[in-house]
């Protein structure tokens, strides 16, 4: 490997962009969170310490948003793990349609989240939604169900929508995990008289552990950080709030920059803890033999 001072020149453009647009703003956000910036009520800037954090932690709106985000994340994780694994196994099987299936599988990932929200809005729409239409026509229900009137139901619907777009990444991550398992292991197990289920539980699942770790962390972080899909699915309101809509409303609607910043930092701490696990996973290598 070469040691050269020109290395700094190569890194410079990236470093400039990252320092000016990511690292510096993150530090400023922390500064905001300790001050009293409220653009609707301008006042001389003063340091208020951790008061904004206390305000948020005591606010019932924050608790609702945090619980909603937790619920959404739970639904997303459940669906993403189950369907992500099934789809990965499906795409791993040799078949003439494998290529096109893989292409189809990543469509939900490739779409704008806004459109994802719109599409699912029309599955659950009370009057012109597909689900009510199926249920009414098959005689399962008499009157259309108002899917968005119940808080738990809204969380499940948001979870389904977010999972729909998160599953592709999970499936291809698990797929590449599956493909890195040496075929000899399966052959050896078969010779030892191990059946399909045995091979799955004793070889596939344990060796997929690092991939599961990556899926768990990336899915959790993206489920907490989702905004566009929620906005186009149920709108930006405090009734269907999540942590992200709560930050958006506080900061850009009520213009309480400091409170928004403090809430952002609280979310960041949670995501930071999760991603420590992620970084460990990325650096972990599986030993097969």
């Amino acid at each position: 490997m070469r040691r050269t001072h020109s290395a700094y020149l190569y890194v410079l453009p990236m470093a400039l962009i990252m320092v000016l647009l990511v690292y510096l703003p993150i530090i400023i956000t922390f500064g905001y969170s300790l001050m009293n910036i409220n653009l609707l009520r301008p006042a001389p800037l003063t340091l208020v310490g951790l008061r904004n954090y206390a305000t948020i932690l005591k606010d019932p709106a924050f608790r609702t948003a945090a619980l909603n985000s937790l619920g959404i994340t739970g639904v997303v994780l459940l669906l993403t793990f189950a369907l992500g694994l099934v789809f990965a196994l499906l795409l791993n099987k040799d078949s003439p349609i494998k290529g096109i299936l893989t292409g189809v599988a990543i469509i939900p990932w490739a779409m704008p989240g806004v459109v994802n929200g719109i599409i699912w809005r029309w599955i659950f729409h009370p009057n012109f939604g597909l689900l009510n239409s199926i249920l009414l026509k098959s005689g399962g229900i008499e009157k259309p169900i108002q899917w968005f009137s119940d808080r738990t139901m809204v969380l499940i619907i948001v979870g389904i929508t977010v999972a729909w777009s998160a599953i592709p990444l999970a499936a291809v991550t698990l797929l590449s995990g599956l493909q890195s398992i040496p075929g000899q292991l399966y052959e050896a197990a078969e010779i030892d008289g191990c059946g399909i289920m045995g091979r799955f539980t004793h070889i596939t699942l344990p060796l997929l552990r690092p991939a599961f770790g990556i899926v768990l962390t990336t899915t959790t972080i993206s489920a907490i950080n989702v905004l566009d899909q929620i906005v186009s699915l149920v709108g930006m309101s405090s009734a269907n709030s999540s942590l992200m809509t709560e930050i958006y409303l506080r900061t850009f609607k009520y213009m309480r920059f400091s409170e928004g910043s403090a809430l952002t930092y609280l979310v960041m701490i949670v995501c930071g803890i999760i991603s420590v696990f992620y970084i460990r996973r990325v650096y972990t290598k599986v030993r097969y033999i």
């Binding site: 070469r2 050269t4 990252m18 690292y23 956000t29 992200m244 990325v282």
Partner: peptide, 26 residues
Amino acid sequence: LRFRGKEVVRYLLLATMAFPLFSTIV
């Protein structure tokens, strides 16, 4: 290439995955 601070740059890059967009956009 070898240069001083390379590992720090790597870790800082990876760490940004944990940052919510709001932490920079405000």
